[in-house]
Nucleic acid binder design. Structure first.
Length: 481
RNA sequence: GGCCCCGUCGUCUAGAGGCCUAGGACGCCGCCCUCUCAAGGCGGUAGCGUGGGUUCAAAUCCCAUCGGGGCUACCA
């Protein structure tokens, strides 16, 4: 049997990190088993679905490298893979189900239903609607004939129970007393999620449904529906939910849940994929690092954890730093140059681009998030007209400030060749001459050329900045003392 | 309220009766390296929710309890 899995987000919001994790696990499972990963658009909630959300989901799936083999935007044997294009099919199924007695027209009003649920709650019994509020056969026929609108409900066989073996949760059993005669077709003729999703899973030959635990209690409905259609239910796997730092389901109020926020914050897709895999699965025995292909090789749905996982940004940042450090210099430039230019508000000249490239190895290991790059190299491309206040106070407004700058100027201006080695030699000489320790002797120079006590390594920075500019900056700072 | 799921360091996890005086990773703390900041190296901190069983032996099995979460829509 060829594995066919699907990720079926509703375009009612931006791609959420939790949804991205579900997509990733589907992707890993498909690839680990030589299967097909399908993307579907479950847009039956026409009021809340938008093209913008749909596009955001697509964009970020691609960005994360979660490319799909078949489905939305890519096509396949099953049309557009967009549910709103298949209303006729769902309606047909709903009516077939009425024919076969598995569903019925329901006239119960929401007031009646509320009363039913309230009574059940007070009595401490199951609040699941059992169809007991419906009119008799004859009346249904005449009311339909009279054109009265009704909803179509699935008739849950009672008594009874549905059993299934969930890949991550093992044996599950649901008493039908607890499951509603749920609506499959709304009064306006559009399908509900339960119907559309189940019909598609059947029609598309989905073999494994890997989704969030929030759908666990709906699974009996889907299985019952599938069986009523005369089909074999898929294998289900329900992933635990992602939690916020407060232990509650991860949501907007925990800050950023939209994948786009992480993208703009400067996270790498590789790092996010790796991190998301860690949330509910162990990538290796003593290692948390794994590339997509390594994850594909090792992925085992049975080994996925049942525990809900807290989304911890700190570890994500650490991983991001790891990936940045491992990136090739060229790749690093490609991914950060635009951000640097954006920060400057202009393009870099060829000479400046060379300076930037020279700085890359130094900057790479000091970067956790991409936008931090601009902060580190900005001093190369802009005049230092303001110095960081604390930095200035800490090293310049001290007796060693002018001493260090004067000595550095003397030592540096006499240099024949301007290189990291000669610069270091000259400045080390300053230490001996002035008796200052390295910290006191070097920090004033650092502030003079970069504006701050924190910068990339000093000697290299001086070399890259160039002799003339370096000496000018030291002189400018000195004149302020 | 009803039904369902889950419960190992602060966080993510390894652990499927003796290999566990519970391992790894992030974080945090300290030391080293060092021109700042990082990175790196070394060391440390911290956990089996609780109470009963079963067993020669339990983080691992059973029961109860407590705690957290999900669902309970003509949303998905």
């Amino acid at each position: 049997m060829t594995v066919r899995v699907r990720f079926a987000p509703s375009p009612t919001g931006y791609l959420h990190v939790g949804a991205a994790r579900t997509a990733l696990y589907n992707y890993l499972f498909a690839h680990a088993n030589g299967g097909t990963f399908i993307l579907r658009s479950d847009d039956t909630d026409r009021a809340r679905s938008t093209e913008e959300f749909q596009q955001d989901i697509l964009d970020h799936m691609m960005w994360l490298g979660l490319d799909w083999d078949e489905g939305f935007g890519k096509g396949g044997e099953h049309g557009s893979y967009r549910q709103s294009d298949r209303y006729d099919r769902y309606r047909d199924v709903a009516h077939d189900l009425i024919e076969s007695g598995s569903a019925y027209y329901s006239f119960a009003t929401s007031e009646q239903l509320d009363g039913f649920k309230k009574a059940a709650r007070e009595a401490g019994t199951s609040p699941a609607y059992d169809g007991s509020l419906e009119p008799g056969y004859g009346e249904v026929a005449s009311r339909i004939a009279a054109g009265e609108s009704a909803v179509i409900r699935f008739r849950v066989p009672r008594p009874g129970e549905t059993r299934f073996s969930d890949v991550v949760r093992d044996d599950m059993v649901f008493d039908h007393k607890q499951v509603d005669d749920f609506v499959i077709l709304r009064s306006d003729g559009t399908p509900t999620y339960h119907l559309a999703s189940t019909v598609d899973d059947v029609d598309y030959g989905i073999t494994h449904v890997i989704r969030g635990e929030d759908l666990l209690s709906s699974t009996p409905k889907h299985i019952l529906l599938t069986q009523a259609m005369g089909a074999e239910p898929a294998t289900y796997a329900h992933l635990s939910l992602l939690m916020g730092p407060d232990g509650k389901k991860l949501s907007k109020r925990h800050g950023d849940t939209a994948m786009s926020a992480y993208r703009t914050a400067g996270f790498l897709p590789e790092a996010i994929d790796n991190y998301l895999a860690l949330l509910g699965w162990s990538v290796g025995d003593e290692e948390d690092r794994a590339s997509m292909s390594e994850m594909v090789d090792r992925f085992d749905l049975n080994a996925v954890s049942k525990n809900p996982a807290v989304f911890d940004t700190q570890k994500l940042e650490w991983l991001n730093g790891v990936y940045i450090r491992e990136m090739g210099d060229d790749d690093f430039v490609a991914r950060t140059l635009a951000g640097v230019e954006d920060d400057l508000g202009r393009e870099l000249t060829d000479d400046e681009a060379s300076q930037f490239e020279a700085m890359v190895p130094l900057v790479k290991e000091r970067t956790k998030l991409l936008p931090e790059v601009a902060d580190q190299v900005r001093f190369l491309f802009t005049d230092i007209d303001t110095y960081d206040e604390k930095s200035w106070a800490k090293v310049m407004d001290k007796p060693e400030g002018p001493v260090a700058l004067d000595a550095a100027t003397a030592a540096l201006s006499g240099l024949e060749t301007w290189s990291t080695e000669t610069i270091e030699g000259a400045l080390r000489g300053v230490l001996e001459d002035t008796g200052l320790n390295a910290r006191k002797g070097f920090q004033p120079v650092r502030v003079a050329i970069s504006g701050s006590t924190v910068s990339p390594p000093l000697f290299e920075s001086l070399e890259i900045l160039g002799r003339e500019e370096s000496l000018n900056r030291i002189a400018a700072a000195r004149s302020l003392l």
